[in-house]
Simulated scan of single mutants.
Amino acid sequence: MQDVPAPSRWFRAAVHSVRTATTVAALTLLVGFGAISVITPPPPSAPSQQIGMSSGPLDDLMQRNRCSYTGFDRTVIPSTAIVRRPDGATELVSFDRGWAVFTGQADGELVAVCLGPEAAAGVLR
């Protein structure tokens, strides 16, 4: 049998350097991705999620009054609005009151604007 020569000193140093560089790069990426996840703010949530009433009474109120969180076309003027009072209660108010809340002239938070309930078939307004 033939003796296999031991790896040279430079070869061992090269392997050690590559292994160390790989470890340092992996740790740097790990720390970098962790920092990005801490720095990046979460995406904005829908208004229904912000007020914590995405189902139940608010959905029913919005459906009955044909409401929208984002508004309507410029040619459409809403008749009512849903606002959240400072005490946390949510209520259906006139569009003028909703506008006052939106512009900061009244306390509360504008949740949605509404067209009002649909007129019953055959009933004139």
Score class of each variant (00 low, 15 high):
Glu91Thr: 15
Phe95Thr: 08
Pro44Thr: 10
Met62Pro: 02
Gln49Asp: 12
Arg84Gln: 15
Ala106His: 01
Ser48Trp: 07
Glu118Ser: 15
Pro117Lys: 13
Asp60Gly: 15
Val4Leu: 14
Ala120Asn: 11
Arg9Thr: 09
Arg85Gln: 12
Arg84Val: 04
Ala13Tyr: 06
Leu124Lys: 08
Ser17Thr: 09
Ile77Val: 15
Val4Phe: 08
Ala119Ile: 15
Phe95Val: 10
Ala46Ile: 05
Val83Glu: 03
Ser68Phe: 10
Ile82Val: 15
Arg74Gly: 06
Pro47Met: 14
Glu109Ser: 00
Val4Asp: 09
Ala35Asn: 11
Pro117Trp: 05
Thr23Asn: 02
Asp87Arg: 00
Ile77Ala: 14
Ala46Gln: 12
Gly88Gln: 06
Thr70Cys: 01
Arg85Phe: 09
Asp96Arg: 12
Thr28Val: 13
Pro117His: 03
Thr28Gln: 01
Ala25Cys: 09
Ser94His: 02
Asp60Ile: 12
Ala46Asn: 13
Thr22Asp: 07
Gly108His: 01
Ser54Gln: 14
Gln105Glu: 15
Gln2Trp: 00
Asp60Val: 12
Val31Lys: 01
Arg66Phe: 03
Asp73Pro: 00
Gly56Thr: 05
Pro42Gln: 06
Val18Trp: 01
Asp60His: 15
Met53Phe: 14
Asp60Glu: 15
Leu58Glu: 03
Ala25Met: 09
Asp96Met: 12
Ile36Gln: 11
Arg125Phe: 11
Met53Trp: 12
Asp60Leu: 10
Ala21Gly: 13
Gly104Gln: 14
Ala6Pro: 05
Gly52Asp: 09
Pro41Leu: 04
Ala35Lys: 10
Gly52Ile: 11
Val113Ile: 15
Gln2Arg: 01
Pro57Ile: 01
Val15Phe: 02
Ala6Asp: 05
Met1Gly: 14
Ile51Asp: 02
Gly56Asn: 06
Ser55Leu: 07
Arg19Tyr: 03
Ile77Pro: 02
Ala46Phe: 07
Gly56His: 08
Pro57Asp: 10
Leu110Ile: 06
Thr20Ile: 12
His16Gln: 07
Pro117Leu: 09
Asp60Ala: 14
Arg97Cys: 02
Ser37Phe: 11
Val83Asp: 06
Leu110Cys: 07
Asp73Val: 00
Ala21Leu: 08
Ile77Glu: 15
Ser37His: 10
Ser37Asn: 11
Gly56Val: 05
Ala21Phe: 09
Pro44Arg: 12
Val18Arg: 04
Thr90His: 13
Thr103Arg: 14
Asp73Glu: 13
Leu115Arg: 11
Ile82Pro: 03
Ser8Arg: 02
Tyr69Val: 10
Ile51Leu: 08
Ala81Asp: 08
Pro78Val: 08
Gly52Glu: 11
Val101Arg: 00
Ser48Gly: 12
Thr75Ala: 07
Arg12Glu: 00
Val18Phe: 06
Leu29Pro: 01
Arg74Phe: 10
